[in-house]
Design a protein around this nucleic acid. Sequence first.
RNA 1: GCCCGCCUGGCGGAAUGGUAGACGCAGCGGACUUAAAAUCCGCAGCUCGCAAGGGUGUGGGGGUUCGAGUCCCCCGGUGGGCACCA
Length: 692
Amino acid sequence: MLANEQVIDGRGWRSGALVEKKQLSQWFLSITKFAPDLLEALGGLDRWPERVKLMQSNWIGRSEGARVRFKLTEPAAELSDIEVFTTRPDTLFGMSFLAVAAEHPLAAATGARDPKAAEFIAECRRMGTSEAAIEQAEKRGFDTGFRVKHPFTGREYPVWIANFVLMEYGTGAIFGCPAHDQRDLDFARKYGLSVTPVVLPAGADAATFAVGDVAHTEDGISYNSGFLDGLGVAAAKRHAIDELEKLASGQGIVNWRLRDWGVSRQRYWGCPIPFIHCDDCGVVPVPDDQLPVRLPEDVDFAKPGNPLDNHPSWKHVACPKCSKPARRETDTCDTFVDSSWYYARFCSPRAAEPVTRGAVDSWLPVDQYIGGIEHAILHLLYSRFFSRAMKEAGHLSVDEPFAGLFTQGMVQHESYKGADGRWLYPEEVDFAIAADGTRSATVKGSTEAVTIGRVEAMSKSKRNTVDPGAIIAKYGADTARWFILSDNPPERDMEWTESGVAGAYRFTQRVFRIVEAALPALPPAGSAPEEAGKALRRATHRAIATVTEALETFAFNVAVARLYEFANAIEAAKDAPGGARREAFEMLARLAAPMMPHLAEEVWSLLRPQDTSLVAELPWPEADPALLVAESITLAVQVLGKLRSTIDVPVAATEAEIFAAAEAEENVKRAIGDKPIKKRIHVPGRVVNFVI
RNA sequence: GCCCGCCUGGCGGAAUGGUAGACGCAGCGGACUUAAAAUCCGCAGCUCGCAAGGGUGUGGGGGUUCGAGUCCCCCGGUGGGCACCA
């Protein structure tokens, strides 16, 4: 049993053996039951990123269409007809073939009577199982020899097995209309199947319109389509569905892309699925008082197969119902199962029962959830499913587990592979730059060549990770925090680099130094800041306001920048009176505290030796609104949208005064020349623009 | 292949449709020093110009607007996800 990522070019990543898909009996959780609600409730998640909601919405994939039954001209095994799902029932008259997935019963029936078909199906089974692998594989098909009757025309069409039809989506069968679906067109061209256009693009001539290599998937008017002729796509869909229902050959339905969640894993590392198989009683749940089922610790990983299944005694238990010998389920749960409800468990982590009503009702939903963008779909959707299922089972009161979501970007790094294909940590690699600028790499302390891979998300499996421990060891934890937070906006992906860490370290030193140097001249703690220190006080309160805003929006890098600016302003105001300077230093410590807590406390204790409170215990500072209002403002002056000058005007200046001042600027006069001013635009506090 | 992001100086990045490049790194010049480190002062997108100032510039191309890094369309590059990596 291999994971998708362990399959490379259809072979096992270590053994190199050909991979084959097999049918297994497994456990599924019926997330599809909640599909409509999981989709609709996205609209209420107003503190979730739009992109995450969009991705989930696409993943759930609601689509309206029709199921259409095609009668087989001869029965295949027990099948007398094949049902397809389509979102384009309006193009039924453009049909040229029907295609089923390799796992479809009709494919099996064909394989049973035709060895060549069986061979084709076997080839499909050797294809990778991931959606990406299937969609990127060369489109291939096999004519089963079976034929179906068109429900409207009675005409007969061939049934193919196609490797791009997914058994998991819809009914595992499609009807092909090459003129209006690109994939069907590629398939039809490859196998010489007919292409009949039935939707005429606006402005095209029905007599001459033909489809070349590009299918027409846009709107148009139905033609060559019997009773649908003359209708637009939407109307034709409705009409076609009405007709199918009248003929009892199909019906309009809503189809979902979301599939039930297969949670079975044939691995050791997961929670055992708590069921017991009894020959007489069937599948029996493990009684509550025997939960949780614990994994055996004496397992043998050397043998191929599922270690739990191979274990000599673990699975042999008595049936809880009839006490006869029975077998434990040896599949374990996908580890996503655990991460789907830990937020509920964490409300009362030491409780004897899985979740405690009082605790979850008090704490949930999680006010602010933070996670990597890689979890945008699976983990976050599974969690939303679990909270709904747990609510239905009476364990929770909330539908949504996470009221606010922030998705951080991925930290990336180049990856490295040794000559034998093993992954290497960055610190195991030496680099050289040739005269022509090309980089090369070798294993440290040897001449073994290293392949430099692409820049991608850090992961343990690819070993492209960097431990911030080295920075902490060299510069301390405050510098490490400050540097990491200052480097880039957290929602954005970033390539890891240590450049800049020296600057972060310098800043920590500087903060301590300027406070220490100023200390002897500062008035005692609690002294009122003087009116004469207003300029510095403005800077202080602007820092409070801007740092606060940056932190609240997770723009930590901006918060850091504002603190650099503030420190610069403090140093530039060496002559400001002591009370204002004390206020500035104290605020510097308090505003920096979330990002360099140790230094902040140290500085705070220097400034307030009598004070036993910690910065961490103080309420967050608030800016004085009176100090945030500027006395004069700088306006940009543009002529035809191009910057020509700037003017400083009092806050109270009237628009007429502003235009007059702007027009008086030498540069502005020159740019206007002798042309008349057609329009004067004034955006208060921002810009003046003259249109000439 | 499909879905979703991202792309701004040498580098990380800032910028409610309104002065692009704040702040930091790296760099350059200067001060201090016997010297170095540390520190301090200054310069800095590119380009023309002695300067004043001009041109140009946010991946490429088009569009909307008095005004576009920001909004719209097309293209390119790159990252995340694609259900068994978690």
